[in-house]
């Protein structure tokens, strides 16, 4: 409308409350799905290496599905599709417990688990096989060698793509708006509808996302640095 006026939004308690609620929801979705994704990724990795062909084939199929179907379509399939197939009692329970956020967490978590497990897998693969040989030569069993020699190095190698995908996961929380979750993007659109100050509220939303994304990237860089023995020795 008239002139650029951030205070029209920032001093309005109703809008600030909406923003804070949006941020809170974004974090709930992001942290919830991250935890789900990481846990699942480790299980998928274990399944990959399990004896027999089923484990490897299943994980390969799982990863293929989640990487080739757009994330938004996955969320739609969960919320508009699977939701309607559930038994009534479960539907009622979910509907009264913020179903949108729950399905966002499930959908995003399952999707990112595929990416995380592939990151861990390639991190592990890039550890030189001589390491395993050396561990076995010293008398380690398979699990012991994995635990003390291979995985620590594998995870360290996997940190850069893991951090990148974690930032992606955070940004993907915004997809929740399409299935009705009341996260930050949803709050931004609501405030825009009520205040007509499109530029200001978009700017605030953008800066908030940018701030948190950069925070995650910086945190990741710090973790990377601490994980690298060369830099840790110097610190």
């Amino acid at each position: 409308m008239t002139g650029f006026d951030l205070s029209a939004i920032l001093t309005n308690p109703e809008f600030v409350a909406m923003l804070l609620h949006g941020i809170e929801m974004t974090f709930v979705i992001a942290i919830g799905s991250w935890t789900l994704a990481m846990t699942l990724a480790i299980l998928l990795l274990a399944l990959r290496f399990s004896p027999g062909r089923f484990g490897n084939a299943f994980v390969a199929g799982y990863v293929s599905y989640h990487r080739n179907v757009p994330t938004l379509v996955q969320l739609m399939l969960w919320y508009f599709g699977i939701f309607t197939l559930l038994p009534d009692w479960l539907t009622y329970w979910l509907a009264s417990h913020n179903a949108e956020a729950i399905f966002a967490i499930i959908g995003l978590g399952l999707c990112q688990a595929a990416y995380f497990s592939e990151d861990l897998r390639s991190g592990l693969r890039s550890v030189s096989p001589g390491q395993m040989e050396a561990a076995r030569a010293l008398g380690h069993g398979y699990i012991s060698a994995m635990r003390f020699v291979m995985m620590p190095q594998g995870v360290r190698n996997a940190l850069p793509p893991l951090i990148n995908h974690s930032v992606s996961l955070f940004k993907n929380s915004s997809l929740g708006v399409v299935i009705g979750a009341s996260e930050l993007t949803h709050a931004v659109k609501e405030i825009e509808n009520l205040s007509f100050r499109t530029f200001e509220i978009y700017l605030i939303g953008t800066l908030l996302y940018l701030f948190f994304s950069l925070l995650i990237m910086a945190g990741g860089a710090y973790v990377s640095m601490r994980a690298d023995p060369a830099t840790r020795a110097r610190a």
Partner: peptide, 12 residues
Amino acid sequence: VTRGVPLLMLIL
């Protein structure tokens, strides 16, 4: 900015 802001926000 493109790495830190969701595509949805950029579309808006």
